[in-house]
Design a protein around this nucleic acid. Structure first.
Lengths: 239, 239
DNA sequence: GTCTATATACCGATAGAC
DNA sequence: GTCTATCGGTATATAGAC
């Protein structure tokens, strides 16, 4: 297993982030293919990956428009150009398709977020880096995040629990940063958990209410700068 | 038309708000009945209202669990105790049921929010009152708000447009308050629209991620106090 | 006003030709 | 590896008895 072991990654600009993240749809689908070879009937990797890219892309597209439950597999078949039979070579049920997408999304979040926070940096820098990394990631993988957000309630009990754990883990990143800053006398926070919660709510708004920001022509970098300044105004110790 | 003409309503505590809001399910359903008498076949008001209460309550309950699309009308029939035939005496299609619920929710929001903001108050008080009123309202009508939030994308074009307008109108309330405070030298805000947007995101989190707050035993008054202090720390002019 | 029974269409999933 | 044809089940919606 490759362990990047907290090598600092600056990601000063969104473009830099995009390149460093190396999150092409294709790579993600290759990983999914390799991990699900027991349930995927197709054996030739190039063919399988090509079709998985198509299937996931089309699923996300249709689900964002009208929801995963509302999208029938006939819709997916028509929009992707693959037949019903071909689709069922890549997953054994519609629920498995949902799960495959969710699992991968959670892992990417975890990997990228920890990779972009350098524990040797001071808390204020860490806070900025975390906010930027989180927003840039959700921008690059917007369909995935919106889908995950909207479809969590349709998961089975086991998967839903994992989804909740993932959410709380993301919040914990901010609780840790705030705690450290508090103890170093840089931040002044009355309630760590609630503060982390509202930070997360602001970040979430970027992909949940994306139509609002794109119609107002607010770029992800604009929004990151704003959230950072807003949060800092609220938590930085008055000097 | 009854016009409350901005009579100040303090709503200092959640309990007071609850009483003043007078938003019993029954009253709301009576209103819906009177406005939809063309599509509701039942003519006796007491019977119709009683069943509408049942239908809406059950619909919200089932939809929150698994989504409106996933809930079949057979599910609704079973859970409400009304037959399929009886259900169709109250709406002409499943989509109309969705629309009836959405329309009413939007109207309530608009009415209550404007009723609880006194334009003669100073901006700082208005900001506090708006945040409290918004949170208290979403607490009282949690199922309605969660439902509206999750099902907006399933509306037809016309209804979705109205939903967007409603969201932007709510944001405008905060933009106006912030603008006034800015011009009076009380607030210092770099971007009015983005600030209003993140305030709204924090308010939304109360009903979107409700499980988180209830598991942590945070009351709506705790949360209101926290959001007010967080926002004030960010926008109040340093003295 | 409420029920049961049913029309019609589409759903997820699979078998078997190619 | 991909297709078409089709299975059994269930969806929305309605007709007609009571």
């Amino acid at each position: 297993m490759m362990e990047s072991a907290h090598v600092a990654m600056p990601a000063d600009s969104f473009e830099m982030f995009k390149q460093m993240a190396l999150l092409s749809m294709e790579e993600i689908c290759r990983e999914i293919f390799r991990e699900n070879q027991q349930s995927i009937k197709i054996k030739k990797e190039p063919v399988a990956v090509k079709n998985l890219v198509n299937i996931f892309h089309t699923t996300l597209k249709l689900s964002i428009e009208k929801g995963f439950q509302t999208m029938s597999l006939r819709d997916l078949s028509k929009a992707s150009g693959l037949s019903m039979g071909a689709l069922y070579s890549y997953f054994s049920s519609k629920d498995e398709l949902l799960e495959m997408i969710q699992v991968q999304g959670r892992r990417i979040t975890k990997t990228i977020l920890s990779r972009h926070i350098d524990p040797s940096e001071p808390p204020q820098e860490k806070l900025r880096a975390a906010i930027r990394a989180h927003l840039f990631l959700t921008e690059v993988l917007y369909p995935w995040f919106y889908f995950s957000f909207m479809e969590t309630k349709n998961l089975d009990k086991v998967q839903r629990k994992k989804s909740i754990e993932s959410e709380l883990a993301t919040e914990q990143v901010y609780i840790n940063i705030l705690t450290e800053g508090q103890s170093k006398g840089i931040f002044s926070v009355t309630d760590l958990t609630l503060t982390a919660g509202v930070i997360k709510a602001m970040l979430q708004d970027w992909y949940v209410k994306r139509w609002k920001y794109s119609r107002r022509q607010v770029s992800v970098e604009d929004y990151a700068d704003f959230v950072i300044s807003f949060v800092e105004a609220a938590v930085l110790m008055a000097t």
